[in-house]
């Protein structure tokens, strides 16, 4: 098993030709850049295109203790036809649930092309023994999930045991086989953008297919500066290695306007190649209805009421 050296030392990891320098991040300048990108004005055709893309990239999510087969079934229906009155509205990318509910989602989504994602590895805290976390992920795949959203061990990361974080990602990646692995950094617990960048590089080095901001259980979650910081790390890995790693902001993205801001960030940081569900997802639940309202407003010209959009 590959062993990661402690950061921020050499960081000579098994990626060819080499990883980008870890470097550091200036918080003020990062936040200013994110704020300036958020001011981009996107109108009309471009806005409709962006909103439809946002739907196609959505991981429609329910992660509650109170989740039941009924709740998940309803969510799956929404995922397939978000707006039954408008044929132009596409399906979402995936439905994201706890492992116990994976079979329900698999059953409901069979043949639709919509992926089933499951959180795993002791979500949301990650504070469980490694073998349990691996088993958790493996079981979710066996139940039919083709995407796994794992959490990193923030306790290990913050105490400087980077190798443990790295090893766990490598082992989970092995355990889930062909399933797509999204690695959740839980940036709200990492404290600094320097740590967000380190964790992003670490996760990508360990084999993550996607890096994801948050569990949705901690605030702040997918803020624009955090997204920018992670996208810059993704871009650097691509520049150095040619590898395309996906990005998933999750948590806190509730309004269509925010979703567009996130897309602008992607477009201007990593480029349009990333504007596809293969490389970009938005983890959300309430966002979808706001996008639907905006789309109908663009179509009809009239501002909308939530009464006309189903709560699922």
């Amino acid at each position: 098993m590959a062993q990661a050296p402690a950061l921020p030392g050499g960081f000579e990891l098994p990626l060819e030709p080499r990883l980008p320098r870890i470097g550091s991040v200036d918080a003020v300048a990062l936040e200013e850049r994110a704020a300036s990108l958020a001011k981009r004005s996107i109108k009309k055709d471009a806005k409709v295109w962006a909103l439809q893309l946002a739907i196609r990239c959505t991981d429609l999510t329910t992660l509650e203790g109170a989740d039941t087969p009924g709740k998940v079934a309803a969510l799956c229906s929404k995922a397939i036809r978000p707006d039954p009155s408008d044929a132009h509205v596409p399906s979402v990318a995936a439905v994201c649930v706890y492992p116990n509910l994976v079979p329900v989602a698999v059953d409901r989504l069979r043949g639709t092309g919509i992926h089933v994602a499951s959180v795993a590895t002791g979500f949301p805290s990650g504070q469980y023994p490694t073998d349990i976390k691996i088993a958790d992920a493996r079981r979710a795949v066996e139940a039919g999930a083709d995407e796994i959203d794992m959490v990193i061990d923030r306790g290990a990361f913050l105490s400087g045991r980077y190798a443990k974080v790295y090893d766990e990602i490598v082992k989970v990646k092995e355990a889930v086989g062909d399933a797509h692995l999204k690695v959740i950094l839980e940036t709200g617990e990492l404290g600094t953008y320097d740590n967000v960048r380190r964790a992003s590089l670490l996760a990508m080095a360990a084999g993550a297919d996607f890096i994801k901001t948050s569990t949705g259980k901690v605030n702040p979650a997918a803020t624009l500066p955090v997204a920018l910081c992670m996208l810059e790390a993704i871009r650097d890995v691509h520049e150095e290695t040619g590898r395309l790693v996906g990005f998933k902001p999750a948590g806190g993205v509730r309004a269509a306007k925010q979703a567009i801001q996130h897309l602008v960030l992607v477009n201007e940081t990593v480029g349009p190649d990333w504007l596809t569900p293969e490389l970009y997802r938005i983890g959300a639940s309430s966002l979808l209805n706001d996008i639907l309202m905006q789309l109908r407003k663009e179509k009809t010209g009239a501002y909308q009421s939530p009464d006309y959009f189903t709560l699922d």
């Binding site: 009309k44 295109w49 897309l263 477009n267 480029g271």
Partner: peptide, 13 residues
Amino acid sequence: MTELDKKQIGVPV
């Protein structure tokens, strides 16, 4: 020129 930009052509703000 990216996809998101292309969609804006002809629609200056």
